[in-house]
Design a protein around this nucleic acid. Structure first.
Lengths: 191, 191
DNA sequence: CGTCTATTTGAATGTACTCAAAAGCGGTGG
DNA sequence: CCACCGCTTTTGAGTACATTCAAATAGACG
């Protein structure tokens, strides 16, 4: 149950048995069926989530009803909505399971307790956010400088697993293009 | 000299006089003239930077020689290139002063020393990166879902100061559009 | 004051979208 | 296990948003 999250945390900090027990005591498990919602636009995001298995998408819906995917998360990834979680304000995001998914979650008060009791977790999250930031900076750069084709090629190179697991419609939404246009791009690239 | 950075740090953590002295002892000042480079593509980013006054742009140059601005930073902002700084690998970014600029900088080894001696700084940077991440997530969402006009309107609403201080050419580069098209947009919006 | 860069303007072009319809595919129930 | 239903993907025609290139004008810096 906790092996994946423990290995994940141990990438950046070292913890003894007691600290690990305290950490895992703050986590709870939840299972979601494919298409179930983990978070809905308008709610306050109460948890930071760690995916044990499965796959979710984190997206907004614009005024015309179109979905725009901010991120995917699969096993060993953290997800959630930091902005809403930190400020306790309603989220603009939705999180939906793309496969049957099992998560570990930690509430805001328990996370604060954890950071307070074991400051090494400040370091853990500092590094986690640092790396996440790097990814978003890179993606932002691609968004403002790449064509859709370049973004697609970069995406499948960086996340080869995702291409097999995630529908074209969802990949298109992540890339910021229409599914029709992604279809055209793929046809062109395969010929 | 240190008032701005001390106030910046005190937003998230409390420090006593001794801790502040240790912190500031690790900082050095540098001044740059307008158009001077703070960092060049291919170098390793050796410092995290805090702007005391002035304004800089952080950008990449694509294969066709076009600039794409990742961020601006003015007084009280942190900047640099985390990816290169953390991994000690050559950066793809350039940082250039848009005005005469004065910065405080801290080297990687000194930052590590600081984080080690005063773990509260782990918390400071955890929160700093968390907030920065939130900004990039929001901007990424706008990039994949907004038209150029919507991105421009959002930008001037969020950073009204920047519009007065930064050339249209640079704003266009930040938004991911051509200066010519931004000119057309502004004309349309002013009529 | 002169030079260099930024901004404006316009015409032609390209990238990506919209809308519509057909084809393909997967899950579910009979 | 097959057939149907709903959703995804494909295809194509017409359109919109944004770029490219060029030239004129305006503005800033030394």
């Amino acid at each position: 149950m906790y092996i994946r999250i423990i290995n994940n945390v141990k990438r950046f900090i070292e913890l003894d048995g007691e600290e690990l027990n305290f950490f895992t005591s703050l986590l709870s498990t939840r299972k979601y069926k494919r298409k179930e919602m983990l978070l809905r636009n308008g709610e306050v995001s109460k948890y930071e989530l760690f995916i044990i298995n499965g796959c979710v998408k984190n997206y907004t819906i614009d005024n015309n009803g179109f979905e725009h995917i901010s991120m995917f998360a699969i096993e060993d990834w953290w997800t959630g909505d930091i902005a809403s979680f930190v400020t306790r304000t309603p989220t603009v995001f939705n999180i939906e399971a793309l496969e049957d998914t099992e998560v570990l979650q930690i509430s805001k008060s328990d996370l604060e307790l954890l950071l307070d009791k074991i400051p090494k977790f400040e370091k853990f999250f500092r590094i986690l956010y640092q790396r996440s930031l790097t990814t978003y900076i890179e993606r932002n750069n691609q968004n403002i400088s790449f064509t859709a084709e370049q973004r697609y090629l970069t995406f499948i190179k960086k996340y080869p697993k995702f291409e097999l697991r995630i529908s074209q419609k969802n990949i298109a939404s992540y890339l910021g293009i229409t599914p029709e246009f992604l279809s055209v791009l793929r046809k062109k690239l395969n010929s």
